[in-house]
């Protein structure tokens, strides 16, 4: 019985081996179908005005600006909504070119060369964990990546409102700070400064004054070390040098964070105080 079984098995195994051998040759897949979603580059003759602008920016600054979404662009579990065409066009001209890349390349050439992300995603709205939930979950979302940056709320950004535009650009540098944090690591010493005193999800119940007293530049910085790092960069980018220096002298923790971060950026060729005045002048003195 046992022998019979083994023989049959052997024969079967042999048969299947030969059968599968002969079938093998037929399988040939087109290369582009190997990916779940094929990557297609729009042919030049199909370019619209924004495509041409993005191409110019890509050639001048090496940043690929993405305003059109394909399934392989977006994480399947998240919901981002592409920006309206006209708004994306105006935004790319004003914010991407005039307020971000141009001054960056001109004033901080070393930093520009090494630290500029290669992809920038424009989002019409904000990040949503659910397609229709009404809670405003802001956040640009793309911050935790080496090469990619993105900003949300483009559909609602009024480019003629200087204060709104200034805030937007400052937040862009906040998001870029996340990128730098992920790339280099803010370091154990930074984390130690406020360890154990982060507000976590209760950050929104605090006042800004309380946050400063607790050693955070913004109450949102009290959420977690990541945001502490980014809001510190944001603060330095938002306010003039003298105001920053006055503030940090009021609090030992703020001072330590300031020292760490100015050094972190200066080492890479970025003077955040200079960046602040460049951005401010571009927006308010033109």
């Amino acid at each position: 019985m046992k022998k019979l079984f083994i023989y049959t098995l052997l024969i079967l195994a042999g048969m299947s081996a030969f059968v599968s051998c002969s079938k093998e040759e037929k399988v040939s897949l087109e290369k582009e179908n190997l990916d779940y979603f094929a990557i297609t580059n729009k042919p030049k003759e199909k370019w619209n005005a924004l495509d041409s602008l993005c191409d110019t920016l890509y050639r001048d600054y090496g940043v690929k600006i993405v305003y059109e979404y394909t399934p392989q662009m977006i994480r399947p579990n998240d919901f981002y909504y592409p920006p309206a065409y006209d708004k994306a066009l105006a935004y790319t001209r004003k914010v991407m070119k005039t307020l971000w890349l141009e001054p960056l390349k001109k004033n901080f050439p070393d930093y520009f060369k090494k630290e500029t992300p290669i992809e920038f995603i424009l989002m019409g709205g904000f990040y949503h964990g659910h397609p229709t939930n009404t809670a405003i979950a802001a956040g640009a979302g793309f911050n935790g990546q080496f090469y990619r940056l993105g900003m949300g709320g483009i559909n609602n950004l009024d480019l003629s409102n200087k204060a709104a535009v200034h805030d937007h650009v400052v937040i862009l540098w906040h998001e870029h700070a996340h990128n730098q944090d992920v790339k280099y690591g803010r370091g154990e010493i930074f984390d130690r400064i406020s360890v154990g005193t982060y507000y976590k999800e209760a950050w929104n119940t605090k006042t800004e004054a309380q946050a400063v007293a607790d050693g955070f530049f913004r109450k949102y910085g009290g959420f977690a070390p990541e945001e502490d790092f980014a809001t510190t960069v944001e603060h330095l980018t938002r306010f003039p040098k003298n105001d920053v220096l006055t503030l940090i002298n009021s609090n030992e923790k703020l001072k330590r964070k300031y020292n760490l971060i100015t050094k972190f950026y200066l080492d890479k060729g970025m003077d955040l105080h200079k960046l602040q005045s460049v951005i401010y002048d571009l927006i308010y003195k033109n």
């Binding site: 911050n143 976590k200 949102y220 945001e227």
Partner: peptide
């Protein structure tokens, strides 16, 4: 016991 909690991910 709230103070010994920490956060993962982003605020979202």
């Amino acid at each position: 016991r709230r103070s010994i909690a920490s956060n993962a991910g982003t605020v979202i």
